Simulated scan of single mutants.
Amino acid sequence: MRISKIAATSLAVVAATAAVSLVPAAAGARPGAAGTVVGVEALSAAATLPGSARAERLIYRSTTAGDQPTTTSAAVYFPSGTAPEGGWPVIAWAHGTVGLGDDCAYSVAGPAAVERDWAYLGTWLDQGYAVVAADYAGLGGPGEHPYLNGIVEAHNVVDAVHAATAQYPDLSNKWAVVGQSQGGGAAVFTARYATEFGGPTLDYRGAVGTGVPAYIEDVIQLLGPGMPPIALSSHLSAYVLYILNGLRTTFPDLDIESLLTDSGRTWVDRAATACIGPLGDELAAAEPSVGSMFTRPLSSIPDLHGLLSRYMGLPESGYDRPLLLAQGLRDTDVVTPETLRFAAVLEANRQPATLRTYPTDHDATVNASLPDSLPFVRGLFA
């Protein structure tokens, strides 16, 4: 762990500890149990959704890589007006890639795509939903973020809803999850495990995933020194570096560094503390080829594809509530044909999934999907 990360984590823990005296634990909660509120803080202006009547940062207990307990955080936004009978229905927002450093956390720095996400979340707020936006483990809290570890992200999202509904009496226990990009994958994992992880106190209704990264494990296994010496787009290169960080956080015994050149280790270490915007700018200026970062292929790891599938492979069955997949056909941030393939697999497996496509790129699909997402989610709560 790097010194800057230790310092940031210490500050986060001190802040959370200081807040405990201000916030009582939820009634009946077991000390340290996942979903237990540890503290409440004010949100920064950058992380406050415009138009929210009330906005706060929750610190709560959850789970990280290796099924280990951790502390993480979430932003909570309330709509205007008086809560309906039973409380505001909850939209759990699973955000896209912001980076891996503590200062990148959604509840600290706000979304990476500010205009896009504020317009999207503002629409849900205007429709009378409260929004609970989990940071994911290792972002703004102790430890490293296991990027694209779907089980961890599902725990973090569900535990954020547990924490918020326990903390705020005017929130309903009825909830759905929506997510984009990294968060699209997190929403899909959450859809698969929400009922199991949520238990009897939450009433999970369904999910929307936009720009979902499907079968990334099939692409990642090809990384190595034999790749053509071409520079990927800065965002794609950043995703690769974040995935390598996620692998070494989730599987430290793999010794990912032993597969890398000096340049590769430098870039992976830089990505461990960098937000997506600055890292993308640095990669655009340097234009490193991915192949130049490796001394050996990633496939030299035994049972690599199985390991990757268990880590990031989207579940192909077991969904007990409706799932809407919304995909832009001009999306090059994810492998669009693989996302369409995933939807076809769900259909073949008779899962309760619906696919909608749009003539849009990765970013534009988020708000383009609203004419389908809004009535879909409204129906879930009907």
Results as ranks from 00 to 15, higher is better:
241 L>A: 06
209 G>F: 13
210 T>V: 13
344 A>P: 00
334 V>F: 11
72 T>F: 00
51 G>W: 01
275 C>H: 08
311 Y>T: 12
221 Q>V: 08
219 V>A: 14
290 V>D: 00
86 G>Q: 14
62 S>A: 05
322 P>F: 09
16 A>M: 04
250 T>S: 09
336 T>S: 11
380 L>V: 11
28 G>R: 15
381 F>M: 13
70 T>G: 02
131 V>T: 02
118 W>F: 04
376 F>T: 04
98 V>I: 11
113 A>L: 15
253 D>Q: 11
205 R>E: 12
380 L>R: 14
95 H>A: 13
179 G>T: 13
28 G>L: 09
53 A>P: 01
119 A>T: 05
127 Q>D: 08
152 V>T: 15
327 Q>S: 12
27 A>S: 13
227 M>C: 00
28 G>I: 12
158 V>S: 07
113 A>K: 08
140 G>Q: 02
351 Q>I: 05
190 T>H: 08
369 S>T: 09
293 M>W: 03
9 T>C: 00
359 P>I: 05
22 L>H: 03
332 T>G: 09
361 D>P: 08
116 R>G: 10
55 A>I: 00
6 I>Q: 07
86 G>C: 15
259 L>G: 04
185 G>Q: 13
331 D>A: 15
97 T>K: 11
16 A>N: 03
359 P>Q: 07
83 A>T: 07
42 A>P: 00
192 R>C: 09
16 A>V: 03
132 V>Q: 03
63 T>K: 03
304 L>N: 10
47 A>I: 01
117 D>S: 10
294 F>S: 00
223 L>A: 07
217 E>R: 10
108 V>S: 03
306 G>L: 11
118 W>V: 05
180 Q>D: 13
79 P>C: 03
218 D>K: 14
194 A>Y: 07
156 N>L: 04
98 V>E: 15
